[in-house]
């Protein structure tokens, strides 16, 4: 009995320490701030081609702009420097505008728009006007670099890659709602916002079941 009691104490101590460590890391991870990303038009992580915006010219492309967009990011290059780029996001007659800094070498340009996009613009036209005196190149959105993802070195019909963001950062935990809305997209038809909560329940169930299995096996 005394032996059984000491085993229980050790189990409680070790389990308590391990669980506290686990819980502390979980809280730390969930409280960490992450960028408030809203999406991208890109299907590649690294672009294999660039599209040109010559000096004084404008390049436009059709886009679906997510609701809440306040910043757009493009991957630009100019030698030795180029731009700035004037950006306009137009849909249904109105337009939201913004202007980038001068492009020097290769850099990511995060361009703040004059106002937040209030609803998803599924038929938007995003235009980049190069008001500088040298050509600016923008990374493409479709063609991967030659290699595993593009063994035939194919060249697709790329637009400029655009990443959309709400600007700033928020904790992971504050994204619980958006994650619940995003997870069912492009999934089975019966998925909905409930899926995230069902997953949470399923994860908890695995913990409980594991506890049950351990408890049964621990019996002499």
């Amino acid at each position: 009995m005394a032996y059984g009691g000491s085993v229980r104490r050790r189990v409680a101590l070790a389990g308590g320490i391990a669980f506290s460590f686990f819980a502390a890391v979980l809280v730390f991870v969930l409280a960490q701030d992450v960028p408030r990303s809203l999406g991208t038009n890109s299907t590649v992580r690294v672009s294999g081609v660039a599209v040109q915006v010559p000096a004084g010219r404008e390049r436009c492309q059709a886009e679906t702009v997510p609701v809440g967009t306040r910043r757009i990011k493009v991957f630009a290059a100019a030698q030795p420097r180029g731009g700035p780029l004037q950006v306009s996001v137009g849909a249904g007659g109105g337009a939201i505008t913004g202007e980038s800094d001068i492009v020097e070498g290769d850099e990511q340009l995060s361009i703040r728009l004059s106002q937040r996009v209030g609803r998803e613009l599924s038929d938007a036209r995003v235009c980049f006007k190069n008001v500088g005196s040298t050509t600016v190149q923008l990374a493409g959105d479709r063609t991967p670099p030659a290699g595993a993802a593009n063994p035939d070195r194919a060249r697709l019909d790329d637009d400029a890659r655009i990443d959309y963001s709400a600007g700033g950062r928020s904790s992971r935990l504050s994204f619980a709602g958006p994650v619940a809305e995003r997870l069912p997209l492009f999934k089975a038809s019966f998925f909905g916002t409930w899926t995230v909560w069902a997953l949470l329940g399923a994860v908890c169930a695995t913990w409980i079941l594991t506890g049950v299995a351990l408890r049964r096996s621990a019996r002499p």
């Binding site: 990303s37 991208t40 890109s42 299907t43 992580r45 997510p66 599924s122 993802a149 995003r182 997209l185």
Partner: peptide, 13 residues
């Protein structure tokens, strides 16, 4: 919207 190597987007449309 995820692409083979890409970042995601989440357009309901």
């Amino acid at each position: 919207p995820f692409g083979v190597e890409g970042q995601p987007s989440w357009s309901e449309t």
